[in-house]
Design a protein around this nucleic acid. Structure first.
Lengths: 123, 123
DNA sequence: GCTTATCTGCAACTTAGTTGCATTAGAATG
DNA sequence: CATTCTAATGCAACTAAGTTGCAGATAAGC
């Protein structure tokens, strides 16, 4: 199911800002913050952006990630994959190949590792 | 090495507020936010708290965790263990028994799972 | 095309966390 | 123990991510 289809099947309206939000997220492939989003779409209002992030998280269209710098990053919740946050360069990397462990009793939606990425680890 | 020893070996001063901060964190055993800390120590100034959290993270005395509600939680960085953040009740659980996976090329300092805890999953 | 409830955009607000600065107090030295 | 020097504290003012109230706009169903 495409993100646009998820919108209509969740009883939400397919508005102009929502189509633009989803097309921009589709073209990214990695999590972005509002700050970064606003560079790609200068017409969006931040309240529209953040309200839609909440709506889309509830509809499982978007997944949020808390950075180590007090910002939230968002990406399309398509194939589940862990994320790595480098505490030195603060880059968020998608670990597309890494498996998601199981924990009995818990329902796991996401995993985030923090530490040093290969670039920063070598220095 | 106790937290107080870590302070002196890092060339930091063992001040009254620092001793209190470490004694309170020692008595907790789970991550707490400034809001929660301030209930246990009404004399601390928040700038002193946050500045020490930064100093202590750099000295590997304290470890920070980003909640899903835009707050930072802190705990003593003694034995490494993963954390689980319930996206429904927003409780942060220490998974003392769960192993920390390896990722080649990366240095992993912490892992955070997000999802639903057993209590919320059952409902 | 009309109606209605949802959604948007604006502006004002909230609050976690930071910063500048004057004062205090560890710790080292004699 | 007194002196000195620098790190640390406390206060107040600030910053910025994210939220909220509300009036006007617009998608979707009839």
């Amino acid at each position: 199911m495409t993100p646009n289809e998820k919108i209509t099947t969740n009883g939400l309206r397919l508005t102009t800002p929502r189509k633009k939000i989803l097309s921009i997220f589709s073209s990214q492939g990695h999590p972005i913050s509002f700050e970064e989003y606003a560079l790609l779409d200068t017409t969006i209002d931040k309240s529209t952006f953040y309200r839609n992030m909440q709506t889309f998280e509830a509809a499982d269209i978007i997944q949020g990630i808390e950075s180590d710098e007090g910002k939230r990053y968002f990406e399309l919740s398509e194939k589940q994959h862990p994320h790595f946050i480098c505490q030195q360069c603060h880059t968020i990397t998608c670990l597309d190949e890494a498996p998601i462990p199981k924990l009995s009793g818990y329902r796991i939606n996401s995993i985030t590792y923090k530490g040093q990425c290969p670039q920063c680890f070598d220095l």
